[in-house]
Amino acid sequence: MNTVLVSLLVNSGILLALGATLYAAPSPLLNPHSVPFGVRVPPDKADAPEVSEQRRRYRALLLPATLIVTVAALVIGAVLDSVAVGGVAAAVLCVIAAALWLSAHRALARAKERGNWYEHVRQGAVMDTSLRTDPVRLPWAWAIPSLVVVVVTAVAGAIVYPQLPEMMALPERSANGTVYREITTTFWTAFSLVFAQILLTAMVIGTVAAVLRARADLDVSRPRSSAAQHRRYLSLTARSLLGIAALLNLMLLGLSGMMWSDSRSGAVLSLVIGVPLLAAVAVSVPLVRMGPGGSRLVLESADGSGGSKGMGSGGLGGPGAPDEGTGLVPRDDDRHWYGAGTVYVNADDPAILVPRRVGMGWTVNLGNLRFLIISAAVLAIAAGATVVSVTMGSS
């Protein structure tokens, strides 16, 4: 069995895995329960017949599309003797899923409007001010493994650098699988992956710091327990992200070792890349199980029994304080969300990061002036650095 055929079979497996992920996308396990297909609905309408019908339709159309695209990619790739078809097929499958999602989003928006789903409910909002006065702290101890791996890589590089050959081999993906590109040995190329480690670590720490300050979408019907859930969710998410950063730095350490030793073993490359990535996926599983915003977290009460507990003196209630049973539902804020619930624009919202309503995690508020100024500054710096680099390279 030649290399191209093996790559095609691997790409087919990836396509099927992608299709399975897209198939599960409308599940409440991966999205806020009361925001099906990016449409905000009252909690008692989250499993309405209209919602269930759109889920069935989305999946009934996506499943055969996944099989057709996968088979077509395998056949066309074999005929053209190219694995690049797999990337095109993945893009096609994502476009099909996006079109089905948009269709379901529009259908539910029309159903909500026709049925006046918010006509007889009390809307409200809640916030935990202690997230500003007593925020969840960044767990710096969990950043130590990443920093240690960076130091180890840098020290190892400093030791081997004087003995490196004039040319080094850098593994790259191509249409014909993994190839090795010869690069001139300089300080910058030899330590390029060390710089990547430093950048990765800084980005993850910055992301965690931003996430800990992001706006919390608390459940207005049970503000105290949802506030406790959110704090626990932030703490576990911060630790998981820093743990994933350490695993990715280990992968970069392995790639640096291969580059410095001129190793071109496919088996070693697979281990260096595969093991840390699989471990990172394993670390990510608990994040998915917690649900969007930690909605499925079960907190232990003060006596050790299952159930929610209060926030303490700095939160929304004392220890063991019961939820009020407010009878409120989240505000209908669809007017601030575009692109089938994927893009948030609200100039009146001071938050830069807000919880996603499609998928898990956070997204940016494109209507926030501070975010726009920061983004413009970063783009200007990047453009200026590119121009300087091109000018120096041509002179």
Rank of each mutant, 00 (worst) to 15 (best):
N116I: 06
A382Q: 08
G314T: 07
V126F: 09
G13T: 00
A60G: 07
Y233I: 01
L193F: 02
S305C: 02
D349L: 14
G315C: 01
V281M: 14
L16C: 02
S221H: 02
A104G: 05
S313M: 11
G87L: 00
V272G: 08
L253M: 04
I96F: 05
A282I: 07
Y233T: 03
A380W: 11
P223I: 03
I352G: 12
T178P: 13
I352P: 15
N11C: 11
L218D: 01
S192K: 08
P28K: 14
Y118C: 12
G339W: 15
L63A: 12
P286K: 09
E113P: 06
F187H: 05
P350I: 02
V268I: 12
S270E: 15
P36T: 05
V148Y: 05
A84F: 10
V208T: 08
L242C: 09
V358S: 06
L269K: 11
G327L: 04
L131C: 03
V39F: 13
M203N: 02
A376S: 04
P26R: 01
I381S: 04
S82F: 12
G384M: 08
G318F: 14
V151H: 08
S389F: 12
L234S: 11
L299C: 01
A17D: 03
S308R: 04
M259C: 00
D262S: 14
V148G: 01
A169N: 10
G359K: 00
V4H: 07
R59I: 06
P355G: 03
G86A: 08
A111L: 15
V71C: 06
T70K: 01
S261L: 10
V329N: 00
F37I: 00
E182D: 06
I198H: 03
